[in-house]
Design a protein around this nucleic acid. Structure first.
Length: 593
DNA sequence: GCCGTTTTCGGCCCGACTGTTTTCAGTCG
């Protein structure tokens, strides 16, 4: 019974990558060859960010075509998908106790420490590690002292406080901006010559592990001091001559590095990451006879330049150019093929905020919005848009008052009147009539077809029953996509980052059907949604689907969220032609069903 | 375990900071 249950479990790309990560962790603790566990880590990352469903790729026999997946791991994945496990995994699970594996989650406790606790002190879980540290039993080991015990206890405390490790970008970005401003304000003018938020925030990843700041200053000590004493600081993790790490309330870490002006290009490149991207760039440098670190290129002697010769770059682009690479937008730096594209000068020309001509999903006071139709229209005009679709919730959504046919007719009068005024005033802006129509549990819609038929834009969204079984929710979603009146599939997976997992949707099948039916797929730009995410959005455009990037604004300020959607699209390699709301209104409307 | 503009074998990015040490290992990014 349980064996059957395991065998029929559907493994998502995330599930598979988690298993591979666990495999890497166990290999590390077991003391395996370091390149072996790196191989599993790389494979995990490759699967996590691969745009196709791993089950489909495996069925096509294409696993080994994914960079980082070779013969061995491809076989392991096949076994995993078929039977729920694979040989090497079972062997290590027998060898490494689950509690020992958990100890690896403790900050500042790595595989070497975990292994010694386990092997030399017979510590099998976090609770007994804590007890041993408190009883001062760890200092008996060679290489460990009182500080080590303190560090372990602090780490355990930190782990308990830390919710799930990563902070949604919608929270992290404002916080980083606040810290940046506070740091500048805390120092005499001119002390900071230049400051940039680097790391995953500069890459606009949907969740952030820690905040990274890079600074040019001739007085690093003063900058360090100011950083350590910011009011937001709860603890100083470490502080040296060029680097300081602090802990903020809520467990978020922030790192600061101060460099000289001539190091800026290499330093910004290094601190922006991702690690995978940096390794790929450093490998390119090596082939050309240079070693790259966060300061400069140094000739290795294997190229034309004399060994030890250094090259400095005040700008990041100059560094890329020196290595014969096109400058790679930070959003693309995830080692998903961008280094290869940069070397052959085939990077896509990414969609920009300025390409957006209008919006196709936003709310007003007719449903749960905070601003009137006229106010939203004014805000849209102020942003330079030439059209904006009012898509309030339809009836059928329990948590909020939705509009019915009658209210929709009333709203239409308001829209017509406003549009007449724009026309009379010679204003190049139009409101469009739309709806975010509720998808009921059986896949039927909250309003009848004849009501939908009158509208310019229909967004179909699922807000309930998101925990339905894979087949059920997929079929429900396909029903929406196939409806001739639904132009756009809204926030397809329904996830709320850090709060609600995505629906167990067969996204591949949904996207294929969107392509067949000409249904546009939304990138919902709200930073707690970002749905589709970067990986699925990339798959969508690979297939040839069209996208709409929508702020889903519920207030005039909500339109600001568009930047998160643009960044997500950029992370998905999306170009302006892939996005229907980069089109002028007439062309855009013609592109809808 | 993966990979190849020289390789199917022999490599696999690079440095800051800490703690326990007299020169380095561990962790992190």
């Amino acid at each position: 019974m349980s064996k059957t249950a395991v065998a029929t479990k559907h493994f998502t790309n995330r599930d598979v990558s988690e298993v591979l990560d666990q495999m890497a962790d166990m290999l590390q603790i077991a003391g395996a060859n370091r390149f072996r566990f790196i191989a599993f880590q790389n494979a995990a990352e490759a699967i996590r960010t691969h745009s196709r469903d791993v089950n489909d790729v495996a069925a096509d026999g294409g696993l080994q075509e994914i960079p980082g997946i070779g013969k061995g791991i491809a076989q392991d994945i096949h076994d995993l998908l078929e039977s729920g496990t694979f040989e090497g995994l079972e062997a290590l699970r027998k060898e490494v106790p689950a509690g020992v594996l958990e100890m690896l989650q403790i900050p500042d406790v790595g595989p070497k420490t975990v292994r010694r606790m386990w092997q030399e002190l017979d510590i099998l879980d976090i609770a007994s590690l804590k007890a041993a540290a408190e009883a001062e039993q760890i200092r008996v080991l060679k290489g460990f002292g009182t500080k080590s015990e303190e560090k372990i206890l602090k780490g355990i405390e930190l782990l308990a406080k830390r919710a799930d490790g990563r902070t949604p970008i919608g929270k992290a970005r404002p916080l980083a901006e606040e810290i940046k401003a506070a740091l500048i304000a805390a120092l005499p003018s001119g002390t900071i010559e230049r400051i940039e938020i680097a790391g995953s925030l500069r890459r606009w990843r949907e969740t952030i592990g820690d905040l990274d700041f890079l600074v040019i200053s001739e007085d690093p000590a003063a900058v360090m001091d100011a950083f350590r004493t910011l009011p937001l600081v709860v603890d100083v993790i470490g502080s040296g001559e060029t680097k300081t790490s602090i802990l903020l309330g809520g467990g978020l870490q922030a790192d600061l590095r101060v460099v000289a002006k001539k190091h800026w290009g290499a330093a910004l490149q290094y601190f922006t990451g991702s690690q995978g991207h940096n390794i790929a760039v450093r490998e390119i440098a090596q082939k050309q006879g240079w070693s790259l670190n966060e300061y400069c290129l140094t000739a290795t002697g294997s190229g034309k330049a004399a060994e030890g010769e250094e090259r400095f770059f005040e700008e990041e682009a100059a560094l890329y150019a020196f290595l014969n690479l096109a400058w790679v937008p930070p959003e693309m730096r995830e080692n998903r093929g961008e280094v290869k594209a940069a070397s052959s000068d085939t990077l896509p020309s990414l969609v920009q905020l300025t390409d957006i001509r209008g919006e196709l999903h936003g709310h007003s006071t007719y449903s749960d919005g905070a601003a009137s139709v006229a106010e939203m229209a004014a805000a849209a005009q102020a942003r330079g848009y030439s059209y904006w679709a009012i898509c309030d919730h339809s009836v059928g959504l329990g948590v909020t008052d939705g509009v019915d046919a009658e209210q929709l007719a009333k709203q239409a009068e308001e829209i017509v009147a406003l549009n007449q005024k724009y026309e009379a005033d010679g204003v190049e802006f139009r409101l469009l009539r739309g709806i975010e129509v509720e998808v009921l549990a059986d896949g039927t819609l909250g309003l009848p077809d004849e009501v939908l038929a009158e509208l310019d834009v229909v967004v179909g969204s699922i807000h309930s029953g998101q925990r339905q079984a894979r087949e059920v929710i997929t079929e429900r979603c396909l029903k929406v996509v196939r409806n001739p009146h639904v132009d756009i599939l809204g926030h397809p997976t329904g996830r709320i980052i850090g709060k609600r997992a995505p629906s167990d949707l067969d996204v591949e099948q949904v996207l294929q059907t969107c392509l067949e039916t000409g249904t546009v797929v939304e990138i919902n730009a709200h930073p707690s949604r970002l749905d589709l995410n970067d990986v699925y959005a990339r798959r969508a455009i690979e297939l040839g689907c069209k996208l709409a990037i929508s702020s889903d604004a519920h207030s005039t300020d909500g339109m600001e969220m568009m930047q998160y959607g643009i960044a997500t699209a950029q992370r998905a390699w999306v170009q302006p032609a892939d996005v229907i709301n980069t089109l002028p209104m007439k062309e855009m409307l013609a592109a809808l069903k």
